[in-house]
């Protein structure tokens, strides 16, 4: 295990590594360099995310549920910003809040006739699902609490460049495979849609 970690370290630190142990931490949201998120902002974001997520899984009107999903995605984008990964935040906005949300809303609208506000929205597991999920949450949080806390501070001056070079050097094979996967998904989706038309 140790050897694997060391190997990964070597692989992942190809560009020049900057070590800034003694940094000055300024509180605030966003910004460019070593700032940490203000707890208040974090809790607001977290409340938004969890609240919207709960609405997604509980709300009766599935269209509202889709809209709440967009809210969750936006909140997660904010979380990424607080984690200093602005590129990921932008990707989240574009792909999740943009493309995937629109896709899902289209799907909801295309299958509009099949649901109604009067029918039940949950299946027979709705009650027993709660303790199981709660137990799961309990276990996960308990194990998270055993984790030593680490501050959130930037390590890379120019993170996007570093990610880019990692993608094109270390992860070039997964990167290419992902493109094939997307192509396959595209063709698969078309095939599924077309087949049902004929049937």
């Amino acid at each position: 295990m140790n050897k694997m970690l060391i190997l990964m370290n070597i692989l992942l630190t190809l560009p020049k590594r900057v070590n800034r142990q003694n940094q000055e931490y300024r509180f605030g949201f966003g910004g460019i360099s070593e700032r940490m998120i203000h707890p208040f902002v974090f809790y607001v974001l977290a409340t938004l995310i969890v609240g919207f997520a709960l609405l997604v899984v509980t709300v009766r009107n599935i269209f509202h549920s889709g809209l709440c999903l967009i809210g969750t995605f936006l909140g997660v984008a904010g979380i990424y910003v607080s984690l200093h990964n602005y590129f990921l935040a932008a990707t989240q906005l574009l792909i999740y809040s943009g493309a995937i949300a629109v896709l899902i809303l289209f799907g909801i609208m295309m299958t509009q006739r099949s649901w109604s506000l009067t029918s039940r929205t949950h299946n027979s597991l709705w009650l027993i699902g709660i303790p199981v999920s709660a137990m799961m949450a309990f276990l996960m949080i308990r194990s998270a609490l055993t984790l030593p806390d680490s501050p959130i501070k930037t390590v890379w001056e120019n993170l996007l460049q570093a990610i880019g070079s990692v993608l094109m050097q270390v992860y070039v094979l997964p990167f290419e495979i992902i493109s094939v996967v997307l192509l396959v998904a595209l063709i698969g989706a078309m095939a599924l849609g077309k087949e049902s038309e004929e049937a």
Binding site: N123, L125, I128, G129, V132, M135, M136, L139
Partner: peptide, 16 residues
């Protein structure tokens, strides 16, 4: 969904 339920409740039990 029942399969999913069985998987995760089993996971919970095992972890406990």
């Amino acid at each position: 969904q029942q399969y999913l339920f069985v998987i995760f409740s089993s996971l919970v039990i095992i972890l406990l």
